[in-house]
Each structure stands twice: as C-alpha cells, then as structure tokens.
C-alpha cells in the first residue's frame, strides 16, 4: 500500500479502519421509536388481555419480538451485507442456523420425551 493511501486511511476514514458502519442521529432515533412501539404493544396486549385467545396473543407477541430484534440489528448494531466484506452477516447466519437447530431440536425432543414418558400415556400392559 502506498504511503499516500495509508495516510488517507488514517486521515479521514476512521470508520473504515474500525470496520463498522456508524449510525446517524436519524437512524438511532428511528430505531429507538420503532423499538418503543414494538415493546409497548406486546406488553399492552398481555397486560390488558385485549385478545382473548392466549395462543394468538403468544403468536403476535413472538412476531413483535422477531421484528424488534431485526430493528435492533439494523439500527443499533448496524448490520448489513457489506460490513467486513459480508463476514459479519455470514457469522450471524451461521449462528442463527445453529441456534435454530439447538432450540427447535431441544424443544421438540423434550416435548415428545415428556409426553411419552408420562405414566398412563401409553398402555403399560402392552410393555409387559
């Protein structure tokens, strides 16, 4: 790398040097307002019991959480496909896959284990 380019990297492109895109006032405030809404609505839904059906409430609350996590990732953690040449996103996707397998697998296996080990769930005489 030439001396000129090196100076340039130190001179004005500190963000690039740190390897992370920084937000602006506008993006932080957008993220904050969205987060407030995305937090307040699920709390209100559960506390007021506006939707009678708990299953539906749970599904909506979880959907809000997923959206809020994405909002935080974009506006606060400044995730995009370009930072660190895409390696950040690759690490994130890999982690999400592992997390998905671990969570879904644990819940699935343990649910079936619980159901099938329950006394009386199966006819015990069949086993004798």
């Amino acid at each position: 790398m030439s001396a000129n380019a090196h100076n340039d990297a130190h001179g004005h492109d500190v963000h690039h040097e740190l390897g992370v895109a920084h937000g602006s006032m506008r993006s932080y405030m957008t993220g904050f307002i969205l987060s407030v809404i995305l937090t307040a609505v699920p709390f209100w839904l559960v506390m007021s019991g506006k939707i009678g059906n708990p299953t539906w409430t749970a599904a909506i609350v979880m959907a809000f959480a997923v959206v809020q996590i994405v909002v935080h990732m974009i506006y606060f953690l400044h995730m995009n496909f370009k930072s660190e040449g895409g390696w950040n996103m690759l690490a994130l996707v890999f982690t999400l896959i592992v997390v998905g397998i671990a969570m879904a697998g644990s819940l699935w296996v343990m649910y079936h284990l619980n159901t099938n080990m329950m006394p009386g769930a199966h006819d015990m005489r069949q086993m004798l």
């Binding site: 040097e17 982690t95 671990a102």
Partner: peptide, 19 residues
C-alpha cells in the same frame, strides 16, 4: 493496521455468547 479485524473478531465472540 492495528485493530483492523477487531470488529469482526468481537462480532464472532458475540455470536458465541449468543449460543
């Protein structure tokens, strides 16, 4: 350059914390 890969390394640490 000093610390040029710190952000990525720290991100990978956070991902392990995520696990």
């Amino acid at each position: 350059p000093e610390g040029h890969s710190t952000a990525l390394g720290f991100w990978i640490y956070l991902m392990s914390d995520c696990l």
